[in-house]
């Protein structure tokens, strides 16, 4: 099942749950929880595409290690365009995106609010734009246990969408290091599956790469600090 199908199924599931909840007259208090997310880009030279964040139920899964990326994820991971992911998550509890690219060394804030319930999950995703199809984010983090004023810090591992070969060739990378192509429907990676990213090679090791030593990445790209503010 591809991810979009999974997300649609999740939406249907949520609708069914919503109907069930309507029949329950004993539910006295609805608490709306508000979360402030501070996203930190701690890379040397990898801008983040506009950062998407969502609160959702346990059926929405933005990616799954070892499984093919959804087209919506591919569009973000290859070109930094999160609009299809936004659409896919539109019926979830909350979804938001920053407007601007998040430059290295900087941080950006996003707020999300949703009815507090057990199993309230947070996902975050953004592209490392000086790559072929690298992205970072967190998936299905349960934030329902956070009390008002509490925070948690989540590291941002770096993934490869598995949708575009890491050629690092001129014209293949949308970020400022190249100004090349973003999304391309072809799937020509070594495996059509999301994995941890093997790293950037750069011109230091490959004369055909358009990327420079500073575009290389290590185990993580930054962090997200999640604070429940209400």
């Amino acid at each position: 099942m591809n991810k979009l199908t999974a997300i649609k199924a999740a939406v249907l599931g949520a609708a069914v749950l919503g109907l069930a909840a309507c029949g329950d007259d004993d539910d006295p208090v609805v608490t709306t929880a508000e979360y402030m997310l501070t996203v930190h880009n701690n890379t040397a030279a990898q801008p983040f595409s506009p950062v998407l964040a969502a609160l959702h139920n346990d059926s929405a899964m933005l990616w799954q290690l070892g499984q093919p990326a959804s087209v919506a994820l591919e569009v973000m991971a290859e070109g930094g365009d999160n609009s299809q992911l936004m659409t896919a998550l539109a019926d979830q509890y909350a979804v938001a995106s920053t407007e601007m690219v998040l430059m290295p060394g900087n941080s950006n804030e996003l707020s999300l609010q949703a009815e507090l319930k057990s199993g309230l999950l947070l996902s975050v995703a953004t592209m490392l734009v000086n790559t072929n199809d690298a992205f970072t984010g967190v998936m299905q983090i349960d934030v329902s246990g956070l009390e008002v004023g509490e925070s948690m810090q989540l590291n941002l591992p770096i993934y490869d969408a598995g949708t575009e070969f890491n050629s690092e060739a001129a014209g293949s990378i949308p970020g400022p290091a190249d100004g090349g192509e973003g999304y391309n429907a072809a799937r020509d990676d070594v495996a059509d599956a999301v994995s941890r990213h093997p790293g950037v090679v750069s011109q230091a090791d490959d004369a055909d790469s358009v990327l420079l030593p500073q575009h290389r990445i290590n185990n993580r790209a930054g962090s997200v600090v999640v604070t429940r503010i209400n």
Partner: peptide
């Protein structure tokens, strides 16, 4: 020399050493 300027003037995750295999020159 590998690079002439610092690309990010805030504390960040080190992108790693590049190195080369030339003990008498290279970058």
């Amino acid at each position: 020399g590998v690079i002439a300027t610092e690309v990010n003037d805030r504390v960040h995750i080190h992108p790693g050493n590049v190195g080369d295999t030339d003990p008498d020159g290279g970058i």
